[in-house]
Design a binder for these strands. Structure first.
Length: 334
DNA sequence: GACCCGTGGCA
DNA sequence: TTGCCAAGGGT
């Protein structure tokens, strides 16, 4: 992480280069937002290991993968262990993909581990083992989308990139657009707004990215934002409008009885098994199948889901198709 | 754009 | 307790 410390030494000096003006926001207001949110971040940012100056680009990249839909608190220990074990892309690339998935543990969305492993191999093959430093190069890596590419560009390399994540979108929606929540999906208007708000100065842009994200994560939260401590509450369009309700209510993610629940249970069985196991251990729930001792608990929990045989088959084949599991001679493994 | 992909902390 | 939802990506 590149902390633009220079901003703290002269906090009220305007940047020499012009800042784009966003719709509904004056130049002066944009400057003020940068200053207030930046100062707030410097005073209140969490001390996360991937933000420290000594953290490698690879460390930032690993954190970004893990943080895709998984909260910071659960990522912290996993990141520490991952970096201890695989401190460079080359170290991970030399491993079996299955080992990466196993080390991913219960972070969720195990395909991220698979893609991170594939990205490490691509980095070794195409970039001499060094995490590439441009948005386009990063975007070409497996599992790296527009958010992650911009985040690594900004946080690991200190280059100007427009980072747009769910936190930043929410801050923009409220502070600028006066809405309770951003649109259901990122659209062109939101992207234009984010680009227009981005400081032209490279250092300032990195601070703005990190600071806006942190503000969304700690203060301008989805559920009950703490506007009373918000550094930009007096500029916030949403507050000024009386905090109107969002135009829609996000539909909750269903879980019980879904394929995802069953896939998760199957993945737990496979992670526990450090050797290939009989296929029917997963696909056949008849109680006379005896699991190896260390698998008993997870297999039992899998059986208690009460899934139909059709659903079991569909999910199992899905795992094979996604490359999360492989089958040979009626034995399956990660 | 809609949908799918895991998991667990927290109110 | 039940439901929300968290630094997204891929199809």
């Amino acid at each position: 992480m590149f902390y633009p410390i220079s901003m703290t030494s002269s906090p009220h000096t305007p940047h020499p280069r012009a800042v784009s003006t966003a719709p509904h926001v004056s130049f002066a207001q944009t400057e003020q937002l940068h200053q207030l949110v930046g100062d707030w971040f410097i005073a209140n940012a969490r001390d996360l290991p991937w933000r420290r100056a000594e953290c490698s680009a690879w460390g930032v990249m690993v954190s970004e993968f893990m943080l895709q839909q998984t909260p910071v608190k659960r990522v912290l220990p996993a990141w520490e262990e991952w970096m201890r074990r695989w401190p460079t892309p080359k170290d991970l690339a030399a491993e079996e993909s299955a080992e990466a998935v196993r080390a991913w543990g219960r972070l969720g969305y195990p395909r991220r581990a698979q893609r991170l492993h594939a990205a490490a191999q691509a980095i070794v093959l195409e970039h001499h083992g060094d995490v590439p430093g441009t948005y386009e190069q990063l975007l070409a890596l497996p599992g790296v989308g527009s958010y992650t590419a911009a985040a690594i560009t900004s946080f690991a390399f200190g280059r100007r990139a427009t980072v747009i994540d769910t936190n930043i979108r929410r801050v923009h929606a409220r502070a600028i657009s006066g809405k309770g929540l951003p649109n259901k999906s990122l659209n062109a208007a939101e992207t234009r707004l984010a680009e227009a708000l981005m400081p032209t100065d490279e250092q300032a842009s990195c601070l703005w990215n990190a600071a806006t994200m942190e503000l969304g994560a700690l203060v301008c939260t989805a559920k009950s934002p703490t506007c009373n401590i918000c550094p930009i509450r007096h500029l916030c369009a949403w507050v000024a409008a009386g905090k109107p309700e969002a135009e829609y209510t996000p539909q909750g993610q269903s879980w019980h009885g879904t394929d995802r629940q069953l896939r998760g249970a199957m993945m737990a069985v496979l992670r526990e098994a450090h050797h290939p196991i009989p296929k029917e251990l997963i696909t056949n729930f008849s109680p006379d199948i005896v699991a190896p001792k260390n698998l008993s608990a997870v297999v039992k929990s899998l059986r208690t889901l009460g899934s139909s045989q059709e659903q079991i088959q569909r999910c199992y084949e899905g795992l094979l198709a996604d490359g999360l599991a492989s089958e040979k001679d009626d034995l399956v493994s990660l």
